[in-house]
């Protein structure tokens, strides 16, 4: 049973559904016994299947969406220490690339070294879980790094725009062009903590390719909500 047959025949999915014939089932089981890559693919498909069912239940109101555990982890000092070197590099790069920052000139030009601490804040785009990205307001002398997952589309440069959306009119807080994935293939958007006052925000992400014609607009990739609550 070769890979092409397994893929085109949806052997993995049919195995999980219990729809293979006895002969197919035996051949597939013999194939994955000695093939760690195929076994990992099978286990991932099983998690996807179980996860979709679970997610479907949550989305339809059976249970409220839970805050991802890794989001809590990401705010922990341990996680921050582990990633801080990479994030710091991303922050410095971000500072150099700001092309627009309304009312924040002094903030973004402030030396990074003046920051008392740094927080990594992975943002999650989760349908049906609108409160997934709720964070406490950073301290004024703290820096925040918003980690955005660009997905698996075929882009090599990105633009992120942080917009405050809870006022009478939307307010663009900052815009960062020319981003490329860094830490764990995510986009790092660094900003001074005092920029993130309590309120409702969106991070709007767009993607493009360097070999596109100069006038071509970037593709809009999505909007990720972010709620900043007052500091306790």
């Amino acid at each position: 049973m070769d890979r092409q047959h397994i893929r085109e025949g949806q052997i993995v999915e049919r195995y999980l559904q219990g729809k293979l014939s006895a002969a197919e089932e035996q051949a597939f089981e013999e194939a994955y016994l000695g093939d760690p890559e195929l076994l990992a693919e099978l286990e991932a498909a099983e998690r996807l299947r179980d996860g979709l069912k679970d997610f479907h239940e949550v989305e339809h109101g059976a249970r409220p969406p839970l805050r991802p555990r890794w989001l809590e982890l990401a705010g922990s000092p341990r996680y921050g220490i582990a990633a801080s070197v990479v994030a710091a590099a991303a922050l410095v790069a971000s500072g150099m690339l700001f092309v627009q920052s309304r009312g924040l000139e002094s903030s973004v030009t402030a030396p990074l070294a003046a920051a008392s601490s740094m927080r990594l804040l992975p943002l999650v785009s989760v349908r049906g879980a609108g409160d997934a990205n709720v964070i406490g307001a950073p301290a004024a002398d703290e820096w925040a790094v918003l980690l955005l997952d660009p997905g698996f589309a075929d882009y090599d440069r990105y633009r992120a725009v942080l917009v405050r959306v809870d006022g009478a009119a939307e307010q663009e807080i900052l815009r960062l062009d020319g981003m490329t994935p860094t830490y764990e293939h995510q986009l790092a958007l660094g900003l001074p903590g005092r920029v993130l006052a309590p309120g409702a925000y969106e991070v709007r992400l767009a993607g493009g390719r360097r070999d596109w014609p100069a006038g071509r607009a970037l593709d809009e990739l999505g909007r990720t909500p972010l709620t900043v609550t007052p500091r306790p």
Binding site: R47, G51, D54, V126, F152, G222
Partner: peptide, 22 residues
Amino acid sequence: GGPFDNVSREQVRGAIGTLLEE
């Protein structure tokens, strides 16, 4: 166990949400 045994149910749900969004 398997290669993803340390991944929690919440993490799987988050990954599913990200995937569907993308």
